[in-house]
Design a protein around this nucleic acid. Structure first.
Lengths: 125, 125
DNA sequence: CAAACGTTGACACAGGTGTGGCAAGGTCGG
DNA sequence: CCGACCTTGCCACACCTGTGTCAACGTTTG
């Protein structure tokens, strides 16, 4: 049996066994299992767990935020849409002649809508 | 008085007045105010609010996630640290000779620690 | 085999999110 | 000036996050 058990892993990573299961439950880490279903923690997992802990602590964030960051990098449309929304903020109406920015705002919105609906009905039969 | 009042804005954006205040409270949008303190909504704000609504709806996310995305782009160290953590996952131990990846794991960790502590004691007197 | 440990599931509880509603008090428009 | 609307608090409530604990049941090991 290569790999530490959950209690051993808990001790060397600073998480509680409870939280190690929770981290897995929320989809951040999928642990290897023994044939009988026991979680097995190897050096890489241990290191990742320590790093994760430090990451959460030093920026005061939660597992949910890491989960969202994961979604951001896995769903490009989501990333683009969020970026688009922020970009809109960056550009202020003073930058453009009064009657231009309204159209520009509208265009931004169009772009975003396009991004949120990646393939509307393109089923490619 | 240029700009709609909160109830008018609510009607044209689909948010409730309650939520418009809440959105401001959590730091996503800082509304202009009239001299007496009334929130004023111009066309750009209205459009941004509609877009935001669509964004949350179509990806089923909350204001908190947008807030975190904002943090990600405002705090580069946070972004790097999260990226570093994900990168570690990308590289699997099969890719490297068994006794190399342990050192590599450790190096990754070092890099991350460096990122989380931008200027340890470098006060540049 | 019995003790120690693992697994999942449930109850619990504090704090955050997303809403609504109500109160007390200031503002605006006719 | 009065009614309609705005502002900020506070109460409320449901659901999610992060933890702990305990139960019921399977596994490993001395």
């Amino acid at each position: 049996m290569d790999g530490l058990t959950i209690h051993e892993a808990a001790e060397t990573t600073g998480w509680s066994p409870r939280m190690l299961r929770y981290i897995e439950r929320v989809g951040l880490l999928a642990m290897r299992r023994s044939q009988s279903g026991y979680r097995l923690y190897g050096p890489e997992e241990l290191q990742r767990l320590r790093t994760l802990r430090e990451l959460l602590r030093s920026f005061d964030i939660g597992l949910a935020e890491i989960g969202f960051a994961l979604r951001l990098r896995r769903e490009p449309e989501l990333g683009s849409a969020v970026e688009a929304w922020f970009e809109t903020e960056a550009r202020r109406p003073q930058d453009v002649p009064a009657d231009e920015w309204l159209r520009w705002e509208q265009d931004k919105h169009q772009a975003l809508l396009a991004a949120t609906k990646p393939t509307p009905l393109e089923i490619t039969t």
